[in-house]
Amino acid sequence: MHNKETLPNLGLPEHERDLFCDARPRVSKPLASYIEKFLNWSRANSLWILAYGTGCGAIELRPLFTARFDISRYGMAPRPTPRQASLLMIGGYLSVKTLKRVIRSYEQMQNPKFVIGLGSCTVNGGMYWDSYNTINRLDHYLPVDVYITGCMPRPEAIIAGFEQLKKRIKDGRAEGANQYAEQFDWYKANQKKIITDWNMPDYNW
């Protein structure tokens, strides 16, 4: 029934399957280098952050958005809907329940999109390395562009992480969305290994 081009969406009940898209994510080739360079400059200078405070990292995002550190100086702004955002900040540990929502939010964002993992717990589980409910390595589930370590990372560290991300974008190295599309099956297998009640489409556009 399904071939290599479409997704089976086995997690959905039979009557709902045709309501959802079954297309696989596509790799979007970058344009000619000089145009891409200009576009990358604009992407780097207008990073819209998805306002999804997934963990305790969210607490340091508030000083960042407000008067003390004010990252709007760099053209960043929180954006309440994933459709319009280009940067997903993972604020620390992810429980399995949150990971499911994060994947959904990430897939709803439009290419190019970037991921920053905040805090040691996204790197190797950090303080919760032996907890049964938090993941240990974020890069097994989503393509991560920049990790910022610390527990909690200070706002200065997060700003430094943003600078690092901007540099990656300007260099054309921040192709996480394409990487996700290329290794889609590997990411999906990892995700489905821990999200046992997969009741959503395999790819949420």
Partner: peptide, 13 residues
């Protein structure tokens, strides 16, 4: 810059 960035998105639904 925001307008350029928005128009530079590669995919859209």
């Amino acid at each position: 810059v925001d307008i350029i960035k928005n128009n530079a998105k590669r995919t859209g639904i």
